[in-house]
Design a protein around this nucleic acid. Structure first.
Lengths: 187, 187
DNA sequence: AGGTTCATGTAACCCGTTACATGATTTC
DNA sequence: GAAATCATGTAACGGGTTACATGAACCT
């Protein structure tokens, strides 16, 4: 079921936008806010090889006139299907607690590969899980806080605020999708 | 230089508070907000073995009357030194971008192992790095936003808000340390 | 007596890190 | 023609995941 690493899905999503080479992908990770992923060749080239072995991408070497040879990757239909399945799979509390990065990566490509309806579905589910989890953390802090050192309490407070911020963001993003849908319908 | 994994430091920090067994540590990761770490035995027991091999902890089996045998771990002086060195090492932009989790773990044990002065030093350095990084992200969003799909823009916005929240938190935490120091000095 | 919880371990596998290697093309 | 950049790879290593294994103590 867990067919690819997070890096693998990031690569799949990026070549979904347009065919890219390993070097293109490295540059994206090196020079954009997607830089949470490693731009090291030892991570990216093997990851692309795995994607190809699994039939999620194909590659072809382009060496057009005076340019350096570049191996361009593009997703197969099977790759597109696997990506969409990963992206639209249901969200549970474990995802929120242990895999927040993965959730945001899933959402980042949502428009291009799954559409606005899936995006709102995703945001609603995320907001629901966050609304359930935040009070649990708040209660823990209240009950256990007395016996915790100040820095420990503050670290937990920081984590909670992060989740609260994410919840606010999800709600405002939902509003944006709702308005853009209405505007689209009015046309 | 990179002597231990993040899990290793988490374990070191926890047994610094009091001697604990592998099972104690698993329970902490299973039942508290420190649950971002894996509670699987396949992660924890080998990690403890590594810490022992490297001389950062010692262990002794306790089997006192009618209780199940438990191997209790406690840090060595070398372990305490390594932990403190890790915890108080300087913060750079890379830490903020790629290792935010690690920063928060370092801070969470700060009072117990490094003191309030180090905590304020840490918070100031963190705030400085965040204040430098956030405008870079904001600018990227402004410049590149037009060519990005809505969900991509929103995902980036979410990340930025996360950093902004962290910056606000760091400033308010600094205020708390400052006030508690004053109160301490008045006595 | 049998199931559950306590408690500690091991082994295969996957994959990211780090470091090294190679050659072609552009730039000065 | 030397240096920098483009572009793609490989290999050793570390450590987390998953799954399996074992036995003691506690509960009913």
């Amino acid at each position: 079921m867990k067919e690819n690493s997070l890096l693998g899905y990031a690569l799949l999503g990026l070549i979904h936008q347009q065919p890219r080479s390993g070097y293109d992908l490295r540059k994206i990770f090196a020079n954009t806010p997607m830089g949470t992923f490693s731009d090291s060749p030892g991570a990216i080239y093997p990851a692309l090889q795995r994607l190809e072995e699994r039939g999620f991408v194909t590659s072809r070497v382009h060496a057009s006139s005076g340019l350096r040879r570049r191996r361009l990757f593009r997703p197969t239909s099977s790759g597109k299907r696997a990506f969409r399945a990963w992206q639209t799979s249901s969200i549970n509390s474990d995802d929120v607690i242990h895999r927040a990065d993965e959730l945001m990566l899933r959402f980042g490509f949502m428009d291009e590969t799954a559409g606005a309806a899936q995006a709102t579905r995703f945001l609603k589910a995320l907001a629901k899980e966050l609304a359930a989890y935040i009070p649990i953390l708040r209660k823990f802090l209240k009950v256990q806080g007395a016996g915790m050192p100040l820095s420990g309490k503050l670290a937990l407070e920081s984590g909670i605020r992060g989740y609260e911020t994410l919840l606010h963001w999800a709600k405002s993003a939902l509003g944006i999708y709702k308005r853009s849908k209405k505007r689209g319908a009015r046309k």
